[in-house]
């Protein structure tokens, strides 16, 4: 194991028991201009008070439909957009408090979905990879050497790739370079925002395996955002299901995949493709698009599409209910005290 870093890895401040990242009530409402000049100002509730934490060395998969706030969450965590409210504690240090944004971005990096748009077309691969370390004060020569090293780590031939421009490479190669670029600062947490979604299936598998290898050798923690449930099942330890800016279910992948608790999760899983004839999708559980986040439904946001919706679902927003084993769900069905007719107790 000879991993070389020009930037020393960030120290483990909080110890192994401290979660790497604790997110509390993270919220982002985008102002939306109403139609017409005098229309009232509206807000799209892209991310609405999400709370979760991620342990050191785990992979958290984030799943949900398009527009559920997955990518906004990623950008909020990176502070590429400013949250309206909520706090983030990275390894025991408050982001914006003890931990400056600049230091946060040294410890947390992101890989974007579009491998071409996320590389500057006018820079050679070497310059792209050396950019972040140089910004953080590494001499140019060393940053270049580290770039060559990183390319080998992500399985590319540094001699041929370093001097090339992004358009001269394939999508899979470019995404490997984006991963290398994210690792150049030796972060502790890497957010993979649909990082393999745009790749061919065979290339996707290779890159996934690479991610697994890199996680081990660089001692990383991943937040893996994807709409592909099979991929999340493969790579993640825990899964977080989002619907319309809220977390509806959060728990270990094995438990969620074996027994999804939230009606939305069940619907999502029934829409999953399978090559196993025994597990063929029989019926479409939910139809249509999610409601508009500008004016989300009252109470539970899923109630408009939920087959189990009752009156209580419109009246009260369900709180997260602990199902044990770190599995929690925000649904009245699992809370006997909620007043839902079909609610039953667990544990």
């Amino acid at each position: 194991m000879t991993v070389v870093h020009t930037l020393p890895p960030a120290p483990d401040v909080g110890g192994p028991a401290e979660p790497l990242l604790k997110v509390e009530g993270l919220t982002k409402h985008f102002p939306v201009r109403g139609t017409g000049f005098f229309a009232p100002k509206l807000v799209a509730r892209a991310v609405d008070g999400i709370t979760f934490s991620i342990a050191k060395g785990e992979t958290l998969g984030v799943v949900g439909e398009s527009g559920c706030g997955k990518s906004t969450t990623a950008r909020l965590l990176m502070r590429l957009i400013e949250p309206d409210s909520g706090s983030m504690i990275f390894d025991g240090e408050l982001v914006g408090g003890e931990l400056s944004l600049r230091d946060l971005r040294r410890r947390m990096q992101m890989v974007f979905q579009d491998s071409y748009a996320s590389l500057n077309p006018r820079l050679t691969i070497a310059d792209s990879l050396a950019f972040a370390p140089v910004v953080h004060g590494i001499p140019h020569g060393e940053a270049m050497a580290a770039a060559a090293d990183l390319l080998e780590q992500v399985g590319l031939d540094s001699a041929t790739v370093l001097g090339r421009y992004p358009h001269q490479l394939s999508g899979g190669q470019r995404q490997r370079i984006n991963i290398a670029r994210a690792l150049a600062l030796h972060p502790r947490l890497v957010i993979l925002d649909e990082a393999v979604s745009a790749l061919d299936k065979s290339v996707e598998a290779q890159v996934l395996n690479l991610l697994v290898d890199l996680k081990r050798s660089f001692d990383l923690t991943y937040i893996f955002i994807s709409h592909d449930l099979n991929v999340v099942h493969y790579i993640a330890d825990r899964a977080m299901v989002m619907y319309l800016g809220k977390i509806v279910e959060l728990g270990p992948v094995d438990r969620i995949y074996a027994a999804p608790a939230h009606p939305y999760t069940r619907a999502l899983f029934s829409a999953r493709l399978s090559s196993d004839p025994e597990r063929r999708t029989v019926a479409v559980a939910i139809e249509g698009d999610p409601p508009n986040p500008i004016n989300p439904p009252s109470g539970c946001r899923f109630r408009t599409r939920c087959p189990m919706a009752a009156e209580v679902c419109a009246a009260h927003e369900p709180a997260a209910i602990d199902l044990g084993f770190g599995h929690s769900v925000a649904c009245h069905l699992h809370d006997p005290a909620s007043g839902h007719a079909e609610a039953r107790a667990h544990v």
Binding site: V4, T124, E152, T160, L162, G163, R164, R216
Partner: peptide, 18 residues
Amino acid sequence: DTTALPRIPPDQVKVSRS
């Protein structure tokens, strides 16, 4: 195993610039 690859010394970084 990508991690076992040796480190390339700075002066030997060959860049065949296209």
